[in-house]
């Protein structure tokens, strides 16, 4: 299943009246959207306000979302329009960032282009990547193989089950345990870093 399908699953729940599903979408996309609006307004605090406004507009408009484009592409457009409107309202001129949303998403996925590819953002990314790599190395072979097949190779659970010769339930459990192990290790490293400071 693609990420678009996961989003559509959550969007459907929102359209059924469950606001909690929208919260998961916010948590999932907030960093990208804040980074995007930051490119327009050039101020972190303002960027967050504009991003918040974009999410609220998206929520209001979700009633008309038909799934013809991916949720992120649709959200991206709303965020760009919100940021532009914000700048116009403030008497500031929007920057020339008018590339197509689908194109932006493709670039995002294929080249790892991030709206927060700033030097400090890149530094954080490299640090987290290194931490992740260390955490992955510490996993048992079964867990490591399962999480790599899923997150790096992008296989679905059924395909992973075939490759590993295990039931789907085992795949699901191993991926979960791998994520938990990684999350705990990163939390510990984070705590250690705080203590060291």
């Amino acid at each position: 299943m693609k990420q678009q399908d996961v989003d559509q699953l959550l969007v459907t729940q929102v359209q059924k009246g469950d606001k909690r599903a929208f919260d998961l979408l916010v948590l999932k996309y907030q960093s990208r959207i804040i980074a995007l609006t930051n490119r327009f307004v050039k101020d972190r605090m303002e960027a967050e306000d504009v991003a918040q406004d974009a999410f609220v507009r998206a929520y209001r408009a979700l009633v008309n979302f038909r799934g013809e484009s991916s949720f992120y592409t649709w959200l991206y457009r709303i965020a760009v329009n919100t940021a532009k409107n914000y700048l116009v309202a403030k008497g500031r001129r929007p920057p020339m960032l008018d590339f197509d949303a689908e194109e932006a998403e493709q670039l995002f996925q294929q080249q790892g282009l991030t709206e927060h590819a700033t030097p400090e953002g890149e530094l954080v990314r490299v640090q987290v990547q290194q931490q992740l790599n260390r955490a992955m190395e510490g996993l048992s072979d079964g867990l490591k193989q399962a999480i790599i097949l899923r997150e790096v190779d992008g296989l679905c659970y059924e395909e992973i089950a075939e490759v590993m010769g295990t039931p789907i339930g085992t795949v699901r459990s191993r991926i979960y345990r791998a994520r938990e192990t990684i999350a705990r290790q990163l939390e510990e490293e984070s705590d250690y870093a705080k203590t060291a400071l």
Binding site: T114, H116, E120
Partner: peptide, 16 residues
Amino acid sequence: NHYSVQKGEGTPPPRV
């Protein structure tokens, strides 16, 4: 966040 990093999609910007 971990999934995004694995896919090369970056991490949350600092200070958010």
